[in-house]
């Protein structure tokens, strides 16, 4: 089982003009096996939510709580959160020159599991995962994210999702910048993850396009640091037709 519970979360970020509150009380629970989509206009605080859950040092939590299966996530360091079972697929994955994908994946897997993976099955797992994501075998010898195309970066994020096998995955605009073929490949990877018992997904997106391939259980409209409306998958269709205007206006 895995339940991610976010309660009245307030987060600010330091700016030149002092601290600025970005999240203004977010409450959201992702229960066992559920997929939640968060949709919203640019600047609404969607990515801040993702980074705050992962523990990025740029963001300061000023109130509220985040728990994973009852454990206080906010009290954990960044790496402890990952080892507890959280995963963040990043919108802008970071280059780590000189560190090969294969070294990186093995180091991360060892850290998350607390022991080194069995060599024979691991190599097989890595190769088949890369292959399913249409990344060729030489990919694992390249430096992490260095010189990757936009699509390769996102597919590499999903490869990590599948190999590290967390309890709850937060996908931060994984669909942005992908062509339709890459979008399908990435969605298939996410769906393989979801098909397993009890996995939670928080899918953050600006566009409804990806929701045609990954059907959410719930859709939340995020505006001005809060959830403005919640509904089922049909809410996404409504957003597609009407846009965010009515929420943005109401928010002001």
């Amino acid at each position: 089982m895995s339940t991610l519970e976010i309660k009245d979360l307030h987060v600010s970020v330091a700016t030149e003009d002092g601290d600025k509150e970005i999240l203004k009380g977010v409450t959201l629970t992702i229960k066992d096996g559920e997929t939640h989509a968060i949709m919203g206009p640019n600047g609404s605080g969607k990515s801040t939510l993702a980074y705050s859950i992962a523990g990025h040092p740029k963001y300061t939590v000023t109130g509220g709580s985040v728990t994973l299966d009852g454990e206080d996530v906010l009290a954990m360091s960044v790496d402890e959160r990952a080892r507890a079972g959280l995963f963040l697929a990043m919108q802008y994955p970071v280059e780590v020159p000189g560190v090969s994908v294969s070294n990186f994946l093995r180091t991360a897997k060892t850290a998350v599991d607390g022991e080194a993976p069995k060599l024979r099955t691991w190599v097989k797992d890595v190769n088949s995962t890369l292959e399913r994501l249409d990344l060729d075998a030489s990919f694992s010898q390249r430096s992490v994210n260095e010189g990757f195309s936009g699509g390769e970066k996102k597919r590499h994020e999903i490869a990590q999702l599948e190999l590290l096998d967390p309890k709850v995955a937060v996908l931060d605009e994984t669909d942005s910048g992908l062509d339709i073929d890459a979008l399908k490949i990435v969605s298939e990877g996410v769906n393989r993850f979801r098909e397993q018992e009890g996995k939670g997904v928080l899918l953050i997106t600006h566009y409804t396009r990806i929701l045609r391939y990954i059907t959410p259980d719930y859709v939340h409209v995020f505006v001005n640091g809060r959830i403005a409306e919640e509904g089922g998958p049909d809410l996404a269709d409504q957003l597609e037709a009407e846009g965010y205007d009515k929420y943005v206006k109401a928010g002001v």
């Binding site: 960044v78 790496d79 963040l88 990043m90 780590v96 560190v99 180091t107 991360a108 850290a111 998350v112």
Partner: peptide
């Protein structure tokens, strides 16, 4: 941050 978000401890991340 990227390395640590994959579970790698801070010292190990620096070493990498």
């Amino acid at each position: 941050f990227y390395l640590r978000s994959r579970g790698v401890e801070e010292n190990e991340a620096r070493r990498l």
